[in-house]
Design a protein around this nucleic acid. Structure first.
Lengths: 363, 363
DNA sequence: GTGAAAGCGCTAACAG
DNA sequence: CTGTTAGCGCTTTCAC
């Protein structure tokens, strides 16, 4: 009541020192819990600090220590369940080690990504996690900025060819292979692949496909490779018209699938490599009055609880979101603690979750 | 090649000044784009800066300016699609104004929330957004910490009674009223409410219910009020056994719904107030071999694309996630720019999306 | 065991 | 128009 118009600024270490009748250094020692301070002095300092509601200014501390206890995460979109899930596990893990995280979204835009990395460098973060929007054969220039500043960096979800960076990914190729093989094992020969790497000039054969893959996100490319592997192993001929290369949103997926379904020899099964692709595919089926698995068998990527309540439940490839987050965190923390470990690529395992969206083709 | 062992440290403003043969201040002026600098000098500074790859140290800048250009967001769980969606819109908006965001999760734990807020205060963020885990009648102590430091604060999704804080919420009560009325309008009298406020002693009547609501999250309480309103308006008697008060996860929702379904007079319709509650409900129906809307009508909360591809598609209450994020951002930015606007509570509108999960009750 | 003092990199006020 | 100077709040030698 008598404190009206209290200055909205925090007490500094000097004020605490004055209040306790000691020097700044003594306060720092007491509160920092290092060096040695006599019992009574200690008491007085503690009391004065509590009294004033003292809280150390982390910015000032960073200024002298050179560490911010802040990590940066750069990803496509926090709103995407995949990234949101990875981020959750990541933040939880690093938080236990005293770090907080600055999250920046790029919307898969390389310029925004460069900006984001720049901001993190400027803000002196102690480490950076990046899910880059750049093609696997084109590690972007901002990586060098980070390295030249000696900031620990871990790549997640998407790797680069020919660079020497800590990376955490999943076995996309094998996972896709398994899923598509499941379809083939059920007798399917015409299998649609929804969401290959985005490109304006679709390949006419597996050979050109490799060129496209080299330029694309590693996650996209690897899933496509797995698809190609499975086809190849079964001796099924590759057909470009069964692979979409459109912009990644539901509407585009729906359009693309509608296109496939209109082919003279339409797919009897579809492998959707991401959540939105799957939704777009389901929408296309509905639009055509088709059901799964009767008319078309379905396997999706990125399992989530709704796949479970669909009727019939959807067979899915499940990515270990939580593990991706924790392994990335551990990898980065280790690199921060001691830059000694050899650079490594951690490949986590996706798991195929069979449910009821796959059956033998109609005819 | 000759740069092996390059020092992993950033050039400072002094180094640029030396390289350009001018004083530090001139460099600051040139790069900061304030004050005035002569053409040629400007040139030299710019060249030197680019040459050395100079980047201003944001920590040092914050030290003198007192602003960090960083905002803090404290919410239950980044992995939750609701919060992830709000966060995305929020970060996008503030980013356009030069701010980055530190994201902390509380898992609905008040102690973690206090920690999180403390960290943000210590890190000198320029503003804070909080979706508090505290009951609406019990604004937590850390709010005062924030205010005593003069840090702009905006509450989101959950409000407090009797405090004077900027707040952004949706019209939960009206939205729930509308949804439940829809059910009643279709002839339902026994309507289950999945996920009321968590409590160990369920109310035996509407009166005690009010006491429970006063202690709970405002979002939970308001939705329950809307349900009660609708029942009341239709003259339907309240039945405690149709309202769950369990921990918020799928399994608990399933168990609770299974319990309701086993009543002598089971519900013919269910209103699920959150995404996981809905999934849990669907799982319970399946377990009992029941279908919707034939056996039980369904309305969920938090619309998302999968509700669209369910068969039949689910009727849902859609929250304006994006708007929640942007309005929260604008509100906070305004408060930061000028602390003049009167404190306000922004109530955004949820919209009922009718699809095909509601029908008349069986008998 | 304790205080004084230097310095982190930057901005801003003040001379020149 | 430009250089010098004084801090921001903290940690960290270094004497006492």
């Amino acid at each position: 009541m008598s404190e009206q118009n209290r200055a909205p600024s925090s007490p500094t270490i000097s004020e605490v020192a004055d209040a306790a009748g000691v020097g700044r250094a003594t306060v720092a020692r007491t509160l920092g819990g290092y060096g040695s301070v006599s019992g009574p002095t200690r008491e007085r300092v503690l009391r004065a600090a509590k009294q004033l509601g003292y809280r150390p200014n982390a910015i000032a501390r960073s200024m002298t220590t050179g560490e911010t206890k802040t990590l940066g995460v750069v990803l496509a979109d926090v709103g995407n369940p995949f990234f949101a899930g990875v981020l959750k596990a990541f933040t939880d893990t690093v938080h236990r080690h005293g770090y907080d995280v600055l999250v920046l979204s790029t919307d898969e835009n390389l310029a925004k990504e460069a900006d984001a990395v720049g901001v993190l460098v400027d803000k002196q973060v102690d480490g950076i996690v990046l899910a880059s929007a750049a093609g696997r054969d084109a590690p972007p220039a901002h990586l060098e900025l980070v390295q030249s500043r000696g900031i620990p960096l871990v790549l997640v979800d998407r790797l680069f060819d020919g660079t020497d960076l800590d990376t955490v990914v999943i076995n996309n190729r094998e996972a896709a292979f398994e899923a598509v093989s499941e379809l083939i094992g059920n007798g399917h020969q015409r299998i649609g692949f929804v969401w290959g790497p985005v490109t304006v000039e679709p390949a006419t054969g597996p050979r050109q496909m490799e060129a496209i893959i080299a330029r694309s996100l590693s996650s996209d490319g690897e899933r496509l490779r797995g698809y190609l592997d499975a086809l190849d192993k079964a001796g099924i001929e590759f057909d470009t018209s069964l692979v979409t290369h459109v912009l990644k949103n539901e509407q585009q997926a729906t359009r693309a699938v509608l296109g496939m379904l209109a082919l003279v020899d339409p797919p009897t099964a579809i492998f959707a490599t991401e959540s939105d692709a799957l939704v777009g595919t389901l929408l296309a089926l509905r639009q055509r009055g088709l059901t799964y698995p009767d008319d078309v068998s379905l396997i999706g990527f990125d399992d989530s609880s709704w796949a479970t309540v669909m009727s019939p439940p959807l067979s899915m490839v499940a990515q270990p979101l939580e593990q991706l987050g924790t392994v990335t965190a551990e990898c980065l923390l280790e690199r921060i603690a001691a830059d000694t470990a050899p650079v490594a690529t951690h490949v986590l395992e996706a798991t195929f979750v069979p449910r009821a969206s796959v059956a033998a083709p109609r005819r």
